[in-house]
Amino acid sequence: KLETFPLDVLVNTAAEDLPRGVDPSRKENHLSDEDFKAVFGMTRSAFANLPLWKQQNLKKEKGLF
């Protein structure tokens, strides 16, 4: 399991300012399950079932792209 970080560490943070080991294209993977659901309004599995373009739009909207 990946290390999780608080939302404010990941949202609207440039790649070079992210904690070590965080993939800038997969910031959402480093949210706790609770934060993930609070941000996206759905579970990880529901998010994973969305088309890629919709996932990317949601990530942009939430500052996690």
Rank of each mutant, 00 (worst) to 15 (best):
V39H: 05
L52P: 10
K27A: 07
S45E: 15
R20K: 15
E28I: 06
T4R: 09
D17H: 10
L18Y: 06
A46V: 13
E61L: 11
A38Y: 12
N29H: 13
K27Y: 04
L7V: 09
K62L: 10
A48K: 12
V22Q: 02
L52C: 15
F47P: 00
K60P: 00
D23K: 05
K1D: 13
L2I: 14
E16S: 11
A15L: 13
V39K: 01
H30M: 05
K1Q: 14
F36P: 00
N29W: 12
K59S: 03
F5G: 02
V11W: 05
L64K: 02
D33G: 04
R20E: 15
P6H: 03
V22K: 02
A48H: 13
T4D: 04
Q56G: 07
L50K: 01
E3S: 09
P51H: 02
F40H: 00
G63A: 03
K37E: 15
E3H: 10
L7D: 02
T4M: 08
K27C: 06
V9N: 05
A38D: 11
N29D: 15
K60D: 07
R20T: 14
Q55R: 08
P24G: 07
F40Q: 00
S45G: 12
R26M: 10
L10I: 05
N12V: 07
P24F: 05
K37T: 12
P19D: 04
V11E: 05
N12M: 08
R44T: 02
V22I: 11
N57Q: 15
L7F: 09
Q55N: 00
F40I: 03
E34K: 10
N49D: 15
L2N: 10
V9H: 07
A46M: 13
N57P: 00
D8K: 09
M42G: 00
S25W: 11
V22C: 05
L64I: 07
P24L: 07
V9P: 02
L7C: 07
W53C: 13
P6W: 03
E28A: 02
A14D: 11
L18W: 05
G63C: 08
G63E: 04
N29Y: 10
A46P: 00
P6M: 02
S25V: 08
F47Q: 00
N29L: 15
V22F: 05
L58S: 01
A48Q: 14
E3F: 06
K62P: 00
V39M: 07
H30Y: 15
T13H: 08
F5M: 06
D23W: 04
G21Q: 08
E3P: 14
Q56D: 15
V39T: 10
G21N: 10
K37F: 15
D23T: 05
T43N: 10
M42E: 00
P24A: 10
L58K: 04
